[in-house]
Design a protein around this nucleic acid. Structure first.
Lengths: 100, 100
DNA sequence: AACTATACCGGTCATATTATCCCGGTATAA
DNA sequence: TTATACCGGGATAATATGACCGGTATAGTT
């Protein structure tokens, strides 16, 4: 095992992260935020749409700064695990699961 | 341009991050923290030694959780651009910074 | 002394993923 | 028509993650 593929839980967490950032952006444009945060608008869009599940720490920190969000609050909200679900299930390929 | 190489400032920031996490670890072993944080011991070691400049947000968040660190505090301390206190020579040794 | 175990190191490799670019397309509004 | 704003997909360089290797250092054991 070299670099484990993203699990389904990680992908879902990435989607929650994206949705949270998008909500916090409000009516401001992606371009505006991206320029302020010194990240590419494409990168911000991929994060917001949940297509990047585990963005870099500095990337999220810079965006959270611009949006006035606490990183701890972001993590607390995004890292919530649903009750009644397994801690560690059999590792299936999340991308294949999504494609089905 | 597809994916810009890490700048020197980013590399230095990564080294500050690693040194900070190492100091917060105290006398506990890497293995102990890594297992608690659900990350590979190798990954934690690379981050602490500054060999990984921009780790994933969930990775840092999980480690900070185990160490009892606030992500906002970590980012604030690591993202500081110290003016005037910068050493004249190139100092990218995270261990020296740790010793201070 | 020799051995064992823990802890960490740098180097190297393999694979998955990111960050960034580009393109055409849709929707809305001036 | 023009402009802004967002979308999905594709392409690619650079990086992160994870494992392995031999090495060093320390502390405890026999």
């Amino acid at each position: 095992m070299v670099r484990l593929p993203l699990t389904f839980a990680e992908i879902e967490r990435g989607q929650r992260l994206g949705a949270l950032l998008r909500r916090a952006r409000g009516k401001r444009s992606m371009l505006d935020i991206a320029l302020d945060a010194q990240v590419s608008p494409e990168t911000l869009r991929k994060i917001e749409t949940g297509r990047v599940a585990t963005p870099a720490f500095p990337t999220i920190a810079a965006i959270a700064d611009v949006l006035g969000l606490s990183l701890d609050a972001v993590w607390a909200e995004v890292n919530q695990t649903k009750r009644g679900t397994e801690p560690t299930g059999p590792d299936h390929n999340a991308r294949e699961w999504l494609a089905s």
